[in-house]
Amino acid sequence: MILVYEYMPNKSLDCFLFEPNQKHVLDWNKRIHIISGFAQGLLYLHQYSRLRIVHRDLKASNILLDADMNPKISDFGLARIFGGNEMQANTKRIVGTYGYMSPEYAMEGLFSVKSDVFAFGVLMLEIISGKKNTGFYGSEYLCLLRYAWDLWKKGCVDELIDPTTLELLKSWSSVAMRYVQISLLCVEENPVDRPLICDVVAMLNNDKRAIQTPRNLTLTVGRALVAQREVEICSIQDMTMSHVEAR
Rank of each mutant, 00 (worst) to 15 (best):
M8H: 10
L13V: 00
V192Q: 00
N133V: 08
K23L: 01
I34C: 02
K114C: 11
K153R: 14
G77A: 00
S235Y: 04
T220F: 11
T213K: 07
G77D: 01
L78G: 05
Y98R: 01
S235L: 12
K208S: 01
R31L: 12
G135P: 15
L185K: 00
D66S: 05
L217Y: 05
W172V: 02
D14S: 01
I81N: 11
L217Q: 09
R93W: 09
P191S: 14
V122C: 08
L110W: 11
I81Y: 08
L26K: 13
S102T: 00
S235N: 12
P214V: 09
I233R: 10
V54P: 10
V113L: 04
V187D: 01
K131C: 07
I236E: 07
K154Q: 12
I211T: 06
E19D: 07
A89I: 06
N205C: 07
Y179K: 11
V192A: 00
P20I: 03
R223F: 09
M101C: 06
E230M: 15
F38V: 14
F118S: 00
R31C: 07
M1S: 13
L58I: 15
L160M: 06
R50T: 10
T97K: 04
K72H: 07
L3N: 12
S115D: 04
C198M: 09
K154N: 12
H55K: 01
L185P: 05
G37E: 00
K114P: 15
L51N: 10
H33Y: 14
S174M: 14
V226P: 03
T134Y: 11
I81A: 12
C234P: 10
E188L: 08
A224S: 10
Y48S: 07
F18W: 02
S49Y: 10
N29F: 03
N62A: 02
V192W: 07
R247W: 00
L217R: 09
D207W: 12
Y44K: 02
I34H: 01
G41C: 10
M107E: 14
S61C: 13
M177G: 00
A106Q: 13
V117L: 01
W149S: 01
I233G: 12
